[in-house]
Computed example of a mutant assay.
Amino acid sequence: MTDIIDIGTGDLRASISALGAELQSLTTDDGRDWLWHGDPVWWSGRSPILFPIVGKAPNGQIAIAGKTYAMAQHGFARRSRFELIAHTEDSCEHQLVSSDETRGQYPFDFCLSLAHRVDGRSLVVTAKVQNRDEGPLPFGIGFHPAFRWPLPGADGKAHYVSLDNGQSPKMIQLEDGLIGQSLPGSPFRAGRLELEHHLFDHDALIFPEGAGTGLTYGAEGGPSLHFTFENLPNIALWQKPGAPFLCVEPWHGMAAHAGGTAEITERPYTIALAKGQDMCFSFRLTLDG
Protein backbone atom coordinates (compact mmCIF):
# COMPACT_ATOMS: atom_id res chain seq x y z
CA MET A 1 0.00 0.00 0.00
CA THR A 2 1.20 3.51 -0.79
CA ASP A 3 1.59 5.30 2.52
CA ILE A 4 1.03 8.86 1.24
CA ILE A 5 -1.48 9.83 -1.44
CA ASP A 6 -1.36 13.23 -3.18
CA ILE A 7 -4.47 14.87 -4.61
CA GLY A 8 -5.18 18.22 -6.31
CA THR A 9 -3.60 19.78 -9.35
CA GLY A 10 -4.63 23.45 -9.38
CA ASP A 11 -4.74 26.06 -6.64
CA LEU A 12 -4.78 23.53 -3.80
CA ARG A 13 -3.00 20.26 -3.10
CA ALA A 14 -3.36 17.81 -0.24
CA SER A 15 -1.54 14.70 0.93
CA ILE A 16 -3.14 11.95 2.99
CA SER A 17 -1.51 9.10 4.93
CA ALA A 18 -2.77 5.53 5.13
CA LEU A 19 -2.14 5.69 8.89
CA GLY A 20 -5.38 7.06 10.25
CA ALA A 21 -6.35 8.27 6.75
CA GLU A 22 -4.90 11.50 8.14
CA LEU A 23 -4.36 14.69 6.18
CA GLN A 24 -0.61 15.49 6.16
CA SER A 25 -0.38 18.75 4.22
CA LEU A 26 -2.59 21.34 2.56
CA THR A 27 -0.65 23.61 0.21
CA THR A 28 -1.56 26.36 -2.21
CA ASP A 29 0.19 26.90 -5.54
CA ASP A 30 2.37 29.63 -3.99
CA GLY A 31 4.01 27.00 -1.75
CA ARG A 32 2.30 27.96 1.51
CA ASP A 33 1.24 25.06 3.77
CA TRP A 34 -1.83 25.84 5.85
CA LEU A 35 -1.91 22.67 7.92
CA TRP A 36 0.03 22.22 11.15
CA HIS A 37 3.15 20.14 10.44
CA GLY A 38 2.96 17.82 13.45
CA ASP A 39 6.05 18.89 15.39
CA PRO A 40 6.01 16.51 18.41
CA VAL A 41 7.55 19.20 20.60
CA TRP A 42 4.00 20.57 20.70
CA TRP A 43 1.67 17.91 19.27
CA SER A 44 2.41 15.18 16.73
CA GLY A 45 -1.11 15.11 15.28
CA ARG A 46 -2.15 16.94 12.14
CA SER A 47 -5.75 16.01 11.36
CA PRO A 48 -6.79 12.79 13.13
CA ILE A 49 -10.18 11.16 12.79
CA LEU A 50 -11.91 10.48 16.11
CA PHE A 51 -13.78 7.14 16.26
CA PRO A 52 -15.52 5.30 17.91
CA ILE A 53 -15.39 7.89 20.69
CA VAL A 54 -14.63 11.59 20.90
CA GLY A 55 -12.62 12.70 23.91
CA LYS A 56 -11.72 10.70 27.00
CA ALA A 57 -13.34 7.74 28.71
CA PRO A 58 -13.28 7.35 32.50
CA ASN A 59 -10.05 5.58 33.47
CA GLY A 60 -9.44 4.88 29.78
CA GLN A 61 -12.35 2.45 29.58
CA ILE A 62 -15.73 2.28 27.89
CA ALA A 63 -18.54 -0.03 28.96
CA ILE A 64 -20.85 -1.88 26.59
CA ALA A 65 -23.77 -3.75 28.13
CA GLY A 66 -21.92 -3.72 31.44
CA LYS A 67 -18.62 -5.14 30.09
CA THR A 68 -15.57 -2.85 30.05
CA TYR A 69 -13.04 -2.38 27.25
CA ALA A 70 -9.84 -0.37 27.15
CA MET A 71 -10.26 2.71 24.95
CA ALA A 72 -7.71 5.46 24.45
CA GLN A 73 -8.71 9.11 24.13
CA HIS A 74 -10.45 9.79 20.80
CA GLY A 75 -10.62 6.07 19.96
CA PHE A 76 -8.47 3.78 17.85
CA ALA A 77 -9.12 4.87 14.25
CA ARG A 78 -6.46 7.59 14.27
CA ARG A 79 -3.82 4.93 15.05
CA SER A 80 -5.16 2.34 12.57
CA ARG A 81 -3.96 1.68 9.05
CA PHE A 82 -6.67 2.31 6.45
CA GLU A 83 -6.89 0.67 3.04
CA LEU A 84 -6.89 2.88 -0.05
CA ILE A 85 -9.98 1.96 -2.08
CA ALA A 86 -10.18 4.83 -4.60
CA HIS A 87 -7.81 7.47 -5.98
CA THR A 88 -8.30 10.07 -8.70
CA GLU A 89 -6.41 13.24 -9.57
CA ASP A 90 -8.46 15.29 -7.10
CA SER A 91 -9.74 12.77 -4.57
CA CYS A 92 -9.05 9.64 -2.58
CA GLU A 93 -10.93 7.34 -0.24
CA HIS A 94 -9.61 5.15 2.56
CA GLN A 95 -11.45 2.48 4.51
CA LEU A 96 -11.14 0.82 7.92
CA VAL A 97 -13.12 -2.38 8.47
CA SER A 98 -13.63 -4.10 11.81
CA SER A 99 -11.18 -6.87 12.63
CA ASP A 100 -10.25 -9.17 15.50
CA GLU A 101 -8.04 -6.35 16.78
CA THR A 102 -10.79 -3.70 16.76
CA ARG A 103 -13.38 -6.10 18.19
CA GLY A 104 -11.10 -6.59 21.20
CA GLN A 105 -11.73 -2.92 22.08
CA TYR A 106 -15.09 -2.34 20.42
CA PRO A 107 -17.13 -5.54 19.85
CA PHE A 108 -18.98 -4.49 16.71
CA ASP A 109 -18.73 -5.00 12.97
CA PHE A 110 -18.43 -1.69 11.09
CA CYS A 111 -16.87 0.03 8.13
CA LEU A 112 -15.44 3.54 8.43
CA SER A 113 -14.64 5.32 5.16
CA LEU A 114 -12.80 8.62 4.94
CA ALA A 115 -12.83 10.56 1.65
CA HIS A 116 -10.78 13.67 0.79
CA ARG A 117 -11.59 15.78 -2.26
CA VAL A 118 -10.04 18.99 -3.61
CA ASP A 119 -12.50 21.35 -5.29
CA GLY A 120 -10.82 24.55 -6.48
CA ARG A 121 -9.54 26.25 -3.33
CA SER A 122 -11.66 24.02 -1.09
CA LEU A 123 -11.03 20.70 0.60
CA VAL A 124 -14.00 18.46 1.40
CA VAL A 125 -13.55 15.68 3.97
CA THR A 126 -16.33 13.12 4.43
CA ALA A 127 -16.55 10.23 6.87
CA LYS A 128 -19.10 7.47 6.39
CA VAL A 129 -19.93 4.91 9.08
CA GLN A 130 -21.66 1.68 8.07
CA ASN A 131 -23.21 -0.70 10.60
CA ARG A 132 -22.40 -4.28 9.61
CA ASP A 133 -23.38 -5.72 12.98
CA GLU A 134 -26.53 -7.58 14.00
CA GLY A 135 -27.75 -4.80 16.31
CA PRO A 136 -27.37 -1.06 16.86
CA LEU A 137 -23.87 0.44 16.48
CA PRO A 138 -23.12 3.03 19.21
CA PHE A 139 -20.38 5.53 18.39
CA GLY A 140 -19.16 9.10 18.38
CA ILE A 141 -17.15 10.63 15.56
CA GLY A 142 -15.23 13.83 15.01
CA PHE A 143 -12.57 15.66 13.03
CA HIS A 144 -9.47 17.23 14.62
CA PRO A 145 -7.62 19.27 11.95
CA ALA A 146 -4.91 21.69 13.11
CA PHE A 147 -3.95 24.84 11.21
CA ARG A 148 -1.05 27.21 11.58
CA TRP A 149 -1.31 30.09 14.01
CA PRO A 150 -0.30 32.55 12.77
CA LEU A 151 -1.65 31.69 9.35
CA PRO A 152 0.86 31.87 6.46
CA GLY A 153 1.79 35.47 5.76
CA ALA A 154 -0.05 36.74 8.84
CA ASP A 155 2.75 37.08 11.41
CA GLY A 156 1.96 39.84 13.89
CA LYS A 157 -1.71 40.06 12.90
CA ALA A 158 -4.57 39.49 15.34
CA HIS A 159 -6.38 36.19 14.72
CA TYR A 160 -10.03 35.43 15.31
CA VAL A 161 -12.83 32.89 14.94
CA SER A 162 -16.15 34.18 13.62
CA LEU A 163 -19.36 32.12 13.64
CA ASP A 164 -21.57 32.35 10.56
CA ASN A 165 -24.68 32.49 12.74
CA GLY A 166 -23.43 35.46 14.78
CA GLN A 167 -24.35 33.75 18.06
CA SER A 168 -22.52 33.52 21.39
CA PRO A 169 -22.85 29.83 22.34
CA LYS A 170 -22.29 28.63 25.87
CA MET A 171 -19.12 26.72 26.65
CA ILE A 172 -18.53 23.72 28.90
CA GLN A 173 -15.56 23.15 31.19
CA LEU A 174 -13.52 19.96 31.01
CA GLU A 175 -12.63 18.24 34.27
CA ASP A 176 -9.56 16.04 33.77
CA GLY A 177 -10.62 15.67 30.15
CA LEU A 178 -14.23 14.73 30.95
CA ILE A 179 -17.34 16.86 30.45
CA GLY A 180 -18.05 19.13 33.40
CA GLN A 181 -20.51 21.94 33.97
CA SER A 182 -21.55 24.68 31.57
CA LEU A 183 -19.80 27.98 32.20
CA PRO A 184 -21.75 31.22 32.51
CA GLY A 185 -21.62 33.49 29.50
CA SER A 186 -19.62 32.85 26.34
CA PRO A 187 -16.15 33.79 25.10
CA PHE A 188 -17.81 34.84 21.82
CA ARG A 189 -19.21 38.33 21.42
CA ALA A 190 -21.86 38.56 18.71
CA GLY A 191 -20.34 35.51 17.06
CA ARG A 192 -16.71 36.67 17.20
CA LEU A 193 -13.84 35.38 19.34
CA GLU A 194 -10.54 37.26 19.46
CA LEU A 195 -7.91 34.53 19.80
CA GLU A 196 -5.39 34.68 22.61
CA HIS A 197 -3.19 31.82 23.77
CA HIS A 198 -4.36 32.14 27.39
CA LEU A 199 -7.86 31.05 26.33
CA PHE A 200 -6.55 27.49 26.22
CA ASP A 201 -4.87 27.44 29.64
CA HIS A 202 -7.59 25.05 30.88
CA ASP A 203 -7.84 22.81 27.80
CA ALA A 204 -10.20 23.02 24.81
CA LEU A 205 -13.08 25.44 24.33
CA ILE A 206 -16.09 23.18 23.73
CA PHE A 207 -19.48 24.33 22.48
CA PRO A 208 -22.02 21.48 22.59
CA GLU A 209 -24.62 23.41 20.61
CA GLY A 210 -25.37 26.82 19.19
CA ALA A 211 -22.15 27.36 17.21
CA GLY A 212 -23.99 26.65 13.97
CA THR A 213 -22.85 25.03 10.75
CA GLY A 214 -20.10 27.38 9.63
CA LEU A 215 -17.25 29.53 10.89
CA THR A 216 -14.17 31.43 9.77
CA TYR A 217 -10.69 31.19 11.25
CA GLY A 218 -8.74 34.18 10.02
CA ALA A 219 -6.21 36.94 10.52
CA GLU A 220 -7.30 40.57 10.68
CA GLY A 221 -6.60 42.07 7.26
CA GLY A 222 -5.05 38.78 6.16
CA PRO A 223 -5.89 35.26 4.97
CA SER A 224 -8.72 33.14 6.32
CA LEU A 225 -10.19 29.65 6.26
CA HIS A 226 -13.95 29.27 6.04
CA PHE A 227 -15.54 26.03 7.28
CA THR A 228 -18.97 24.52 6.80
CA PHE A 229 -20.12 21.40 8.67
CA GLU A 230 -22.64 18.67 7.92
CA ASN A 231 -24.13 16.50 10.66
CA LEU A 232 -21.56 17.78 13.19
CA PRO A 233 -23.41 19.69 15.94
CA ASN A 234 -20.56 20.04 18.47
CA ILE A 235 -17.62 22.41 17.92
CA ALA A 236 -14.33 22.63 19.81
CA LEU A 237 -11.30 24.89 19.50
CA TRP A 238 -8.00 23.70 20.95
CA GLN A 239 -4.28 24.23 21.11
CA LYS A 240 -1.49 23.39 23.48
CA PRO A 241 -1.13 26.75 25.28
CA GLY A 242 1.35 28.86 23.35
CA ALA A 243 1.64 26.42 20.44
CA PRO A 244 1.75 27.73 16.85
CA PHE A 245 -1.48 26.00 15.75
CA LEU A 246 -5.24 26.09 16.23
CA CYS A 247 -7.49 23.03 15.97
CA VAL A 248 -10.98 23.58 14.58
CA GLU A 249 -12.87 20.44 15.63
CA PRO A 250 -16.40 19.57 14.51
CA TRP A 251 -17.84 16.52 16.30
CA HIS A 252 -20.90 14.34 16.72
CA GLY A 253 -20.15 13.07 20.20
CA MET A 254 -18.17 14.24 23.21
CA ALA A 255 -16.22 12.92 26.18
CA ALA A 256 -17.97 11.08 28.99
CA HIS A 257 -19.47 13.08 31.85
CA ALA A 258 -17.19 13.72 34.82
CA GLY A 259 -18.41 11.51 37.64
CA GLY A 260 -20.67 9.63 35.24
CA THR A 261 -20.84 6.16 33.79
CA ALA A 262 -18.42 4.58 31.30
CA GLU A 263 -21.32 3.22 29.21
CA ILE A 264 -20.73 4.29 25.62
CA THR A 265 -24.46 4.81 25.03
CA GLU A 266 -24.58 7.45 27.78
CA ARG A 267 -21.84 9.65 26.36
CA PRO A 268 -23.23 12.99 25.10
CA TYR A 269 -24.40 12.96 21.47
CA THR A 270 -23.63 9.26 20.97
CA ILE A 271 -25.28 7.83 17.86
CA ALA A 272 -26.97 4.41 17.81
CA LEU A 273 -26.90 3.45 14.13
CA ALA A 274 -29.45 0.82 13.15
CA LYS A 275 -28.46 -2.51 11.62
CA GLY A 276 -27.61 -2.18 7.93
CA GLN A 277 -27.66 1.63 7.99
CA ASP A 278 -24.94 4.16 7.25
CA MET A 279 -24.41 7.82 8.14
CA CYS A 280 -22.17 10.55 6.71
CA PHE A 281 -20.38 13.46 8.40
CA SER A 282 -18.39 16.09 6.54
CA PHE A 283 -16.70 19.46 6.54
CA ARG A 284 -15.59 21.78 3.75
CA LEU A 285 -12.83 24.34 4.21
CA THR A 286 -12.18 27.11 1.69
CA LEU A 287 -9.05 29.25 1.61
CA ASP A 288 -9.31 32.99 1.10
CA GLY A 289 -6.07 34.90 0.68
Rank of each mutant, 00 (worst) to 15 (best):
H159Q: 11
V129S: 11
L195G: 12
F200V: 14
H87L: 11
L193R: 09
I62R: 01
H197N: 11
G180C: 07
F76W: 08
F76Y: 14
S186F: 01
R79Y: 05
W149P: 02
I62T: 07
G185V: 02
A154V: 02
K56W: 07
E134F: 00
S80F: 04
D155A: 11
P107F: 06
L114R: 14
D155M: 08
V97S: 13
P187Q: 09
Q61I: 06
C92K: 00
G191F: 05
V125G: 01
P138T: 03
Q181N: 14
Y106C: 03
F82K: 14
P138N: 08
L174R: 11
L195S: 04
Q73T: 14
F76G: 05
E93Q: 15
M71G: 03
R79N: 12
L178Y: 06
L195F: 02
S182W: 10
H116N: 12
V118S: 03
I179A: 15
D119E: 06
D176M: 09
F143G: 06
P184I: 01
H197S: 15
D119M: 05
F76Q: 08
C111I: 12
A146D: 06
A190W: 01
D164P: 06
P136E: 12
Y160D: 15
F147E: 01
I62H: 03
R103T: 14
D90C: 02
P107S: 10
L137D: 09
A154W: 03
K157D: 09
Y69R: 00
H144N: 05
H197V: 07
A115K: 14
R132K: 09
A72T: 09
P184L: 04
R132C: 05
K157V: 11
W149V: 02
I172L: 13
F147K: 05
H87Y: 04
H116I: 03
L151E: 05
H74D: 11
G180I: 02
G135Y: 07
L84S: 05
P58D: 11
L183M: 13
V124D: 13
A154D: 13
H198L: 01
P145W: 08
L84D: 00
L114V: 14
H144K: 03
F76M: 10
N131T: 04
I64P: 07
V129T: 06
T68Y: 03
L123H: 11
L178K: 12
G180W: 02
F110I: 12
S162F: 12
F139A: 08
E194V: 15
D176Q: 09
I141G: 06
S98P: 05
S113R: 14
S122N: 01
R189H: 14
P187W: 01
F200L: 13
R78E: 08
E175D: 12
P169Y: 02
L199F: 01
P152E: 10
G104H: 07
F143W: 03
R103Q: 12
S113M: 10
A127W: 03
A77Y: 04
R192Q: 10
I179E: 13
L163V: 09
I64L: 15
H94M: 15
S186C: 02
F76E: 10
L193K: 08
T88S: 12
G153P: 14
